[in-house]
C-alpha cells in the first residue's frame, strides 16, 4: 500500500499565472509521455519483473512518478489560479475551461484525455525494460520542448528538475536491463531469453 507524504518532491512557487504555459505543460500530466502514463507503466509492469532488483527499480521509479504527477498538478494549479475569463480566452484556454473550469484534468496539450494505450505491459523483461528506457527519453524530450517554449524562471526551475529525473531514471532502467541480460543464457546473443519463458518454441 501507499502512504501519502505531505510534501512536494521539489518546490513549486510560481508568481505569475499563465494559462498559455498551462496549456502545453498539461501534456506531462495526461499526455502520451506524461507522468500518469509513466507511473501506470512501471507500477503495472513490476509484478512479473522476476528479479528483486528490477522489481525494486520499477516499484520505486513508479512511486516517484506519482510524486512528479503531483508536481505537474501543482504547476498547472498555480499557473491557472485566479485568472479572469478574458485572460483565459486570450491564452486560448477557453476550450479547456468550458469543460473543466480550472480543474486539473489529465489530458494532452491537444486536449486528448489520458489513455492506457500510451503504455505497454508485455510481461517480458527485455520488452518491458526497453519500453521503459524509450519512455524516459520521450519524457525528457517533452521537457526539453517545454523549456523551448517557456521563459518564466519560476516555471522552468521545477521543469528542469523533472527533466533531470528522466535522465536518472533512464540510467536506473539501464541498470535493470544490464541485470536482466547478465542473467540470461550466455550463449544467447540476441537479447531474447528462452530461460525466462521456457516452452515458447524458440
Amino acid at each position: 500500500m501507499w502512504i501519502y507524504d505531505r510534501k512536494l518532491q521539489y518546490p513549486v512557487k510560481i508568481k505569475n499565472p499563465n494559462a498559455a504555459y498551462a496549456k502545453i505543460i498539461i501534456s506531462q500530466l495526461g499526455g502520451p509521455d506524461g507522468e500518469m502514463a509513466a507511473a501506470m507503466r512501471y507500477l503495472n509492469q513490476r509484478y512479473t519483473a522476476k528479479y528483486g532488483e528490477i522489481i525494486g527499480i520499477l516499484n520505486d521509479v513508479g512511486t516517484e512518478e506519482l510524486a512528479h504527477l503531483e508536481m505537474i498538478g501543482a504547476i498547472l494549479y498555480q499557473l491557472t489560479k485566479g485568472l479572469s475569463p478574458d485572460q483565459i480566452r486570450a491564452a486560448g484556454m477557453d476550450q479547456y475551461f468550458v469543460d473543466h473550469t480550472a480543474g486539473i484534468y489529465p489530458a494532452s496539450a491537444a486536449g486528448v484525455p489520458t489513455d492506457m494505450k500510451y503504455i505497454g505491459v508485455k510481461g517480458d523483461l527485455i520488452a518491458d525494460l526497453n519500453e521503459d528506457l524509450a519512455a524516459e527519453q520521450k519524457a525528457r524530450v517533452t521537457y526539453d520542448n517545454i523549456l523551448r517554449l517557456v521563459d518564466d524562471p519560476d516555471v522552468r526551475d521545477p521543469i528542469k528538475y523533472l527533466r533531470a529525473r528522466e535522465i536518472v531514471h533512464y540510467q536506473r532502467f539501464g541498470d535493470a536491463l544490464r541485470i536482466a541480460q547478465d542473467r540470461m543464457n550466455s550463449k544467447n546473443f540476441y537479447a531474447y531469453n528462452p530461460s525466462f519463458d521456457k516452452g515458447c518454441g524458440c
Partner: peptide, 9 residues
C-alpha cells in the same frame, strides 16, 4: 533487504 525480501503481492 528491500530487493531480497518477498514483495507484498
Amino acid at each position: 533487504q528491500w530487493v531480497s525480501t518477498p514483495w507484498p503481492w
